[in-house]
Simulated scan of single mutants.
Amino acid sequence: MTSPDSRIEVPAEPTAFPLVEGATALIVIDMQRDFLLPGGFGESLGNDVSLLQRVVEPLAGLIAAARAVGVPVIHTREGHLPDLSDCPPAKLHRGAPSKRIGDPGPSGRILVRGEYGHDIVDELRPLPGEVVIDKPGKGAFYATDLQQVLADAGITQLIVTGVTTEVCVHTTTREANDRGYECLVVSDCVGSYFPEFQRVGLEMVKAQGGIFGWVASSDDVVAALASLSARTTTPA
């Protein structure tokens, strides 16, 4: 049973989020060059990638705050094997992008593992030892070992960040919710190419008393982590 002293209340919607010391991980979803930088898959779909780049600065601050207090940081990357054997036709041939998955682009083959564009942007580069989950789908649990990683670390709560809000962030949050994890989505550390999808995506998470989880700002989460740090460094 979690003692009251191991909890920190994070101001959030629809209610305060009870962050549990030692049971929380920060998950950073798909902050990849192919989604955030010109010439990648995101732009090939006709999107304004600058809308996602706004997430980088607040997310860098949140990652730093998590690392400072020992909260595990888990990164994900969406992408496929070089032969595209794990990319179903329903995904590969969907829509009419200017470049499809596997096509050559300025940062290598689009959304192919091992290519420069598939990797995480420099500002958010994982540290040695941090977990990086390579996933073929939208959700971070599908065809990955994420659940085992979380179970082995005793994680029951996820601070959810990354892109895009209505696709990979939402899918992962829903998957996590079904598996019993408590999810806190950080509003300015998730992003969408569509402002309306961003707004509605966050509303859906916290609707009906938090049907999928909680929503908070990075300022409030960072402040809570700072108070955790102060608690652990204050002499008895």
Rank of each mutant, 00 (worst) to 15 (best):
T2N: 13
P4D: 12
D5A: 15
P11L: 09
E21W: 06
G22Q: 08
A23R: 13
T24M: 01
T24L: 00
V28I: 13
V28H: 01
D30A: 04
D30R: 04
M31H: 02
M31W: 00
Q32H: 07
R33H: 09
R33L: 07
D34G: 10
F35C: 03
P38Q: 03
P38K: 06
P38F: 02
F41T: 03
E43W: 03
E43L: 05
E43H: 09
S44W: 02
L45K: 12
N47Y: 06
N47E: 14
S50M: 09
L52D: 04
R54Q: 15
R54E: 11
V55L: 09
E57G: 13
E57F: 08
L59H: 03
A64C: 10
A66C: 15
R67W: 01
V69D: 01
G70S: 13
P72E: 04
V73S: 00
H75D: 03
H75A: 03
T76H: 01
G79W: 02
H80L: 00
S85I: 10
P88E: 08
P88T: 12
A90S: 14
A90M: 06
L92P: 02
H93I: 05
G95H: 02
G95R: 05
P97A: 09
S98P: 03
K99F: 06
R100K: 11
R100H: 12
G102A: 07
G102M: 03
G102F: 04
P106I: 15
S107R: 14
G108C: 13
L111T: 09
V112W: 00
R113A: 08
R113Q: 11
R113S: 05
R113C: 08
G114R: 12
G114P: 07
E115Y: 11
E115R: 09
Y116N: 08
D119E: 15
I120N: 09
V121A: 11
V121T: 12
L124I: 14
R125A: 15
P128H: 09
P128Y: 06
V132Q: 10
D134I: 06
K138W: 07
G139I: 04
Y142P: 02
L146K: 11
Q147M: 00
A153W: 00
Q157P: 11
T161R: 06
V163T: 15
T164N: 15
T164F: 03
T165V: 12
C168Y: 08
C168G: 14
H170M: 15
H170I: 04
T171W: 05
T173H: 02
R174L: 14
A176V: 02
R179K: 13
C183T: 14
V186T: 10
D188W: 08
D188I: 14
S192E: 06
F194M: 12
Q198L: 11
M204W: 03
K206A: 15
K206L: 08
K206C: 11
G210H: 04
I211G: 03
F212M: 11
W214V: 04
A216R: 01
S218D: 07
D220V: 03
V221E: 00
L225P: 07
A226D: 10
S229E: 12
T232K: 14
A236K: 13
A236E: 07
